[in-house]
Simulated assay, not measured.
Amino acid sequence: MFHQSACHCLLCVEQEVELDESGLRTVRSVRDRGWAVVMVPEDEDGPGWAFTVGLWHTLRSPEAAMFGLRADVMGNCLDTLADEIAAGRHLVEGRERDDVIRNYPVVARTVDTSWYRSLFGTALHFYQRPPLSFMEIVWPDAVGRFPWNDGCAPRLRELQPALWIPKGDHAPGPWTKLP
């Protein structure tokens, strides 16, 4: 059990909440480091993804998510991004940044809330209730084209969902199959 007071996250609520080992690890990491990174490895059903929990609690920054790379790579990228946010380089919708993946820019895009339940359950549980802001950190293909650019590698669109598009309007794929 975990017990705290004040806002609406698990570190601040004034109620006892049962947590499994994963939930306890997340709470400990947010308390000790300022954030946690939850990694979902790829499997036979589709590509993996990773996302932060605690950036809002600690830094009043939107949480961040990445898709389609190896889970450990995304985890390292999100830790690097969180360090940059802590240093004052905040996420800005649509702005390229070069401090997440070596030799490649990334772009932050605001995630439509219709995706939250399918992809970010741990964060929803941690914060106890929406609204919660997420930004997708989108990476380019080998020649620097993003999924929305003409001529980008087709596999890039399969690996990274366009979460700024409502789930019901998104092209069918592994991401739209998630409950």
Results as ranks from 00 to 15, higher is better:
5 S>V: 15
11 L>H: 07
13 V>T: 12
13 V>G: 08
15 Q>F: 01
22 S>A: 10
25 R>G: 03
30 V>T: 02
31 R>H: 00
34 G>R: 08
35 W>E: 04
36 A>Q: 05
37 V>E: 03
39 M>P: 02
41 P>A: 05
43 D>I: 01
43 D>Y: 01
44 E>Q: 05
45 D>E: 03
52 T>I: 01
54 G>W: 03
54 G>V: 02
56 W>M: 00
61 S>N: 06
64 A>P: 02
69 L>A: 09
70 R>S: 09
70 R>C: 04
73 V>S: 08
73 V>N: 05
76 N>Y: 08
78 L>M: 11
79 D>V: 09
80 T>P: 02
85 I>Q: 06
90 H>A: 11
90 H>E: 13
95 R>G: 00
96 E>S: 07
101 I>G: 00
103 N>M: 12
104 Y>N: 05
104 Y>S: 05
105 P>A: 04
105 P>E: 03
109 R>F: 09
112 D>Q: 01
115 W>N: 04
115 W>I: 02
116 Y>V: 06
117 R>V: 01
119 L>H: 02
121 G>N: 09
121 G>M: 10
127 Y>E: 11
131 P>G: 14
139 W>R: 02
142 A>H: 15
144 G>P: 05
146 F>S: 07
148 W>K: 07
149 N>L: 11
152 C>E: 12
155 R>H: 14
155 R>P: 07
156 L>Y: 11
156 L>T: 07
158 E>C: 12
159 L>H: 11
162 A>P: 12
163 L>W: 10
164 W>D: 10
166 P>L: 04
166 P>M: 04
169 D>Q: 14
169 D>Y: 10
170 H>M: 13
177 K>V: 13
178 L>I: 06
